[in-house]
Write a protein that binds this DNA or RNA. Structure first.
Lengths: 150, 150
DNA sequence: GGATAATAGTTGTTTTTGTAACTAACAAGC
DNA sequence: GCTTGTTAGTTACAAAAACAACTATTATCC
């Protein structure tokens, strides 16, 4: 947190303060990908996240997605509705526990997922490309820890 | 981006995808600090950012703050209003260009800034403390680059 | 110097989010 | 089996963000 540029400010540097810095980095790093799912697919952030979870893990419940994506159930609920309206997913009630519903992508949803995932892979490679491989590995490891993954 | 756990998903791992990972890390790393400025000071995110900019850099215009914090002018405008209502800052018109107004903290604003800044310093130290010093240096350097600082 | 464009900041309207209360289904204890 | 508590998911309302249109002032350029 020491800061040579502003020794008169008790060494505090806003641009090094992790909550601020992480938010700014996250926003910058997301903006172009956001344009893709927003402008080209008409999706909201929670919607692509739900799409990706189902694409990656197959059938899941809303609760499971919310837990894994650290997203509140109302946001998940709305994203699921929207994806359902667009015929990207279908829901089926659990026979054992009729409160639960299992979500799964339709063929249309699968196809949208694959397209977006390929874009995501390229996008990530481009972001990571500006750093050394070992640096990126350190970055991801630290971010995973900060995010509470692992 | 390779992923050993899910080799059936073309090596895509959502929890390593930088836009997602960065957002999750940013959110986790911000949440406790957010509680402080929100619950204890009744501030919104943009409000503490404006407060900090004025605390750090002294007198600034709304435009300058928006540019430095990458925040839209309407958000800045409303944050400034709110901080003014609470007597945390005062505005003075520029004599040369009467569209411009200079913002500066009142003594009350200064005091709130100093308190929050001290909390921020401790908070950052606590976050950083879970990593080695050289790792943290690498992290901040990379995040600054991603954020478009420097 | 008068029309046109640009800039700083504000206001109004629409989306999206956050929060709390709700419904429906199940579980536990007695 | 009936009260009480929990859980999955939805809905309704309030708060905040996004976006566009606006006012007032200054700059440009003919």
């Amino acid at each position: 947190m020491r800061n040579d540029k502003f020794p008169d400010t008790d060494g505090f540097d806003l641009q090094s303060f992790l909550p601020f810095l992480l938010n700014q980095a996250a926003e910058s790093a997301s903006i172009d990908f956001q344009k893709v799912y927003k402008d080209r697919y008409g999706m909201l952030r929670t919607e692509w996240r739900v799409l990706f979870h189902l694409g990656l893990f197959g059938s899941m419940t809303a609760k499971q997605i919310g837990h894994r994506a650290k997203t509140h159930k109302t946001k998940i609920s709305r994203a699921v509705h929207q994806l359902e309206n667009r015929r990207f997913l279908k829901r089926t009630r659990d026979d054992q526990d009729r409160r639960v519903e299992w979500l799964a992508l339709t063929p249309m949803g699968e196809s949208a997922y694959r397209e977006l995932r390929d874009i995501a892979v390229q996008y990530d490679a481009k972001l990571a490309g500006q750093f050394d491989a070992d640096e990126i590995a350190i970055l991801r490891k630290m971010l995973r820890r900060l995010a509470g993954f692992e």
